[in-house]
Design a protein around this nucleic acid. Structure first.
Length: 888
RNA sequence: GGGGGAUUAGCUCAGUUGGCUAGAGUGCUUGCAUGGCAUGCAAGAGGUCACCGGUUCGAAUCCGGUAUUCUCCA
């Protein structure tokens, strides 16, 4: 049973919603801009798949890649952590305070306030506003590091002394109190606030300071204040950042635990609605059985991660981020299945609870509730089937095993190939008095990991700055021009699998970097100084940098360059992108407004559009959509492009924003008739729809549960496609001697064909019957009672040999039959024996046929009573018959 | 991105080292039985064994490639 600490009971009434609101209101008072959470799924950043901290969306501010819009910001950020120093996926749910998905409350200063205000306000919020017991609070500060040549953070220590006695301020080492984003990037010392939630008796027994940072479930960190002042380079060295920043993060769920007087995150109102529902459905109570409790925590935690990830566009799949989501989901199903006996999909039923819970804070769940539910249910179905199949396989293995140890190879195969969890294998093995070879399993797993890792090796060098003044504020000129003059700002080399290429950042560029589905531009840059031409093979975006990818580095990197985009290619891309917008609008008209974009590819030769919809589109619907798009093309609607529109205004104009897409405060709006298509979009478009020329849907298919994909062509490609189809029809007409009713003719021809086939079959059967009669007439009754038939005959097909043989076997007792016949120039023989000859006289058709086959230079086999053989020498058929006569 | 598996009747799947006329269950059609239904009995239709190529006297089965799909790792 969840224990309530009586001392903390008076705060029990503060709901999680209030806690969140108080936090945001507090920092609003302190002149912070409150911003929405960034999507959980990260695009354009190779180092990160999911947002794992509140600061992710501000990374470019810290790096100086992007000008700061507000110097003070606060928000609550959706975060996902599935690996890290204290948070392995396999550990979540075992204890009561780690999560995959969580909210991070944070406040930021970008070159504005620093340590003093950060500490003052943290104290004010926790003690004055939230009224936490100050005697339970501890602070840690950075104690310095010799390796990095850094002193202890005495400054922070001094500020804390105003509020806390010295014995509750602890110095900690680099591992705990020096925050780093990754191997490289912004970093700095940090100061953490911990809270001791134990009861008085325990607090009297052991001082809280001895339990800080010791993984005690009730002495936990609640707030981390990071003082960002360095940038770590690839070589490990630290460099001072141009300005000092504050980055803080407070775990929302833990804060709720502290404020609601609970000893577990799962006992707060963030989780109880989920836990209650699960317990009820499983016909059990939370807090009664340790294993069941763990399962319920796993489910309650994981459903949040899965639902939010799907809402932000990350579908369960078999690679990258999608695979992470799938693994989380499967872990939840596995616990539900094993410990709570859920044999049918269940997790999806939790989605409505979550959606209602977060309707105000994160409305993306509510508005996609049906879709998310469907995706999860489908995935649950798939996995339960996988489990079932795996179970069958495992049982089969155990039946056929000689020893009572299941080899590691088998355990691994079950896991690797059939997705059957190894711990489940172990469990079932134990129940059946088997053991598993864990060592062998680990070994096989190691080989698999090594292989994958080897493949992924790539080396990325540090950025080399070409210009002294690193004011990267790159202008994209490509909306207005396809040619421009520019200088290199920075570059770096990337090596991967014996191949190497360069990434170049220019101070301004007409090259469009891949984003929003539109592929990156190609073209070339040419040095003014020596005329050297370097091909740009792709353009990518990393965070907000436009990166030109080349195979070669210009010899003169200090030159200015003519940058030229492949214009013809871009023209096709533009047409496809505008067509995509028209398609999106048409789909919403024809199918309904539940249609939202789930993915898009805009390439020069084709376009692909994925959208949420729950059924296969009918022929009529496809035609209607295609027709509407072409109608809009013929209307030749002029493009209305608006840059730098405040996002609120854009939304008022009815612009469609996508879930899981990060938008700034100012956006670009693309309009083709304000009554028809208004979208937020950074891509390139035609000046008027007539340029698209013609639009043709080529395929409609499913990509995932609830997601359909349309592939289409425009302009020349669409015309070529139609021409090609027409040419084929013409060819058919020509074959039909200029028929005007080809479908009717073809179906008539097909009917005739099957009729003729039947007639031929009938005729062939008659021939075969005649031959059978002839064979019967040649039947000799030998002295030993055997009815002997051996003849060379002419049969229509190979199948007839079998047919006649089986029929004769029914008609004649004690039969010894040899048929020899040429089929399409090749000799074929068959031997049929009555069953009693096989059992009584030890005759074997297979052996006989092999012996006979020598005469036709071939081989054969079959069963003891019937066997066939083929060969190469037709002239030997007569010898076969002669030889057969001698065999009795 | 790198491994492994699967693809056989409308659906779910068998098919043992290459040699049954490629099967089962379910569904479908028809007939029979019961007043009707659930159902029972009988008969029947339905397969380019994913596709392309190779090895072989012979390939659903072995080998290579393609497509689709499942699965694990990064």
């Amino acid at each position: 049973m969840p224990k309530i600490n009586p001392k903390l009971k008076r705060y029990n009434t503060m709901t999680s919603k209030e806690i969140r609101r108080i936090f945001l209101d507090f920092f609003k008072e302190k002149s912070h801009q409150i911003v929405p959470s960034a999507p959980l799924v990260i695009k354009n950043d190779p180092t990160l798949m999911f947002t794992n901290a509140g600061m992710n969306q501000f990374k470019d501010f810290f790096l100086g890649n992007k000008p700061v819009t507000y110097s003070r910001i606060a928000d609550t950020q959706k975060c996902l952590r599935v690996s890290g120093k204290h948070n392995d996926l396999e550990e979540v749910g075992i204890d009561t305070y780690h999560h995959t998905f969580f909210e991070m409350l944070g406040n930021w200063s970008f070159g504005d306030y620093f340590k003093k205000e950060a500490i003052d306000w943290a104290w004010e919020l926790l003690v004055v506003r939230y009224k936490l017991d100050k005697d339970r609070l501890y602070a840690t500060v950075f104690g310095g590091d010799k390796g990095d040549n850094l002193p202890a953070d005495e400054e922070a220590f001094e500020f804390w002394k105003q509020y806390l006695p010295e014995e509750r301020i602890l110095f900690a080492d680099k591992k705990d109190n020096f925050w780093e984003m990754g191997d490289t990037g912004p970093c700095g010392p940090c100061s953490e606030i911990h809270i001791d939630l134990r009861n008085d008796a325990e607090r009297a027994k052991t001082p809280g300071r001895e339990l800080v940072n010791q993984d005690h479930p009730q002495v936990v960190e609640i707030w981390n204040l990071v003082f960002m002042q360095f940038n770590r380079k690839n070589d490990g060295s630290l460099h001072a950042l141009p300005a000092q920043h504050v980055d803080t993060g407070m775990g929302f769920e833990r804060l709720a635990m502290a404020l609601q007087g609970k000893t577990s995150n799962y006992d707060t109102d963030v989780f109880t609605p989920l836990i209650d529902f699960i317990a009820n459905a499983a016909a059990t109570n939370y807090g009664k059985d340790r294993k069941k409790d763990i399962a319920m925590r796993v489910m309650a935690d994981h459903i949040r991660a899965i639902a939010f990830a799907i809402a932000d566009g990350e579908m369960p799949s078999n690679n990258k981020g999608g695979y992470v989501i799938k693994r989380i989901l499967r872990r939840a199903v596995r616990y539900a299945y094993t410990f709570l006996d859920f044999q049918v999909p269940f997790l999806y039923k939790l989605v409505p609870i979550l959606a209602a819970q977060f309707a105000e804070t994160f409305p993306e769940l509510k508005s996609q509730e049906e879709f998310i539910t469907k995706v999860i249910k489908n995935e649950e179905d798939t996995f339960l089937r996988t489990l079932e199949n795996g179970l069958k396989r495992l049982e089969h293995e155990m039946e056929h095993l000689e020893s009572h140890e299941i080899p590691g190879k088998v355990v691994f195969e079950l896991y690797d190939t059939f997705g059957f969890p190894a711990d489940l294998t172990a469990l079932i093995a134990r129940e059946n008095h088997f053991t598993i070879d864990e060592k062998g399993f680990e070994q096989a797993m190691g080989i698999q990991k090594e292989r994958s890792r080897k493949d992924a090796i790539s080396e990325t060098d540090d950025w080399q700055f070409v210009q002294e003044d690193k004011s990267i504020n790159v202008d994209f000129l490509g909306y207005d021009t396809l040619q421009a003059s520019a200088k290199i700002v920075e570059y770096r080399k990337i090596a991967r699998k014996k191949q190497s290429f360069y990434q170049i950042v220019l101070d301004q560029t007409p090259f469009y970097a891949e984003s929003g589905g539109q592929v990156g531009d190609t073209g070339y840059i040419q040095a003014h100084s020596n005329g050297e031409k370097i091909e740009v093979i792709d353009t990518q975006k990393e965070n907000d940098l436009i990166i030109h990818i080349t195979k070669k580095l210009p010899t003169d990197i200090y030159s200015s360059f003519d940058c030229v985009v492949d214009a013809k290619r871009r023209k096709n891309i533009k047409g496809n992108h505008s067509a995509t917008h028209l398609l999106h609008a048409a789909l919403r008209h024809v199918l309904g407004t539940h249609v939202t974009q789930k993915g898009s590819l805009v390439a020069p030769n084709a376009l692909r559009f994925d959208f949420s919809h729950f059924a296969k589109m009918s022929e009529e619907e496809i035609l209607a959509v295609e027709g509407e798009v072409n109608q809009k093309i013929r209307e030749n609607i002029e493009l209305q492009e608006m840059r730098n529109v405040p996002i609120e205004q854009a939304k008022q104009m009815g612009a469609m924003a996508l879930f899981g897409e990060k938008y700034g405060d100012f956006v670009r709006v693309i309009i083709f008739d304000k009554e028809h298509s208004v979208e937020l979009c950074g891509g390139t478009h035609v000046a008027s729809t007539g340029e698209i020329g013609y639009f043709k849907i080529v395929s409609e298919a499913s990509v995932a549960s609830g997601v359909r994909r349309i592939e289409a062509l425009t302009a020349q490609a669409a015309e070529d496609y139609v021409q090609n189809e027409l040419a084929q029809i013409q060819e058919i007409k020509n074959l039909l001697k200029g028929s005007k009713q080809i479908t009717k003719d073809i179906s008539r021809i097909l009917d005739e064909k099957s009729e003729l086939q039947k007639k031929i079959e009938l005729y062939e059967n008659q021939v075969a019957q005649t031959i059978k009669k002839q064979l019967l007439e040649t039947c000799e009754k030998l002295e030993n009672g055997i009815n002997f038939i051996a003849q060379k005959v002419e049969l229509p097909t190979a199948n007839h040999i079998r047919q006649i043989a089986f029929e004769l076997e029914h008609q004649v007792d004690n039969l010894f039959l040899v048929i020899a016949t040429p089929i399409e120039g090749k000799p074929q023989i068959a031997v049929m024996l009555s069953a009693n000859l096989v059992s009584d006289k030890g005759l074997n058709a297979s052996k006989i046929v092999r012996e006979l086959a020598k005469e036709i230079k071939g081989g054969g086999g079959g069963q003891p009573f019937f066997a066939t053989a083929g060969g190469k020498d037709v002239s030997g058929l007569d010898n076969v018959i002669e030889k057969a006569k001698t065999m009795l």
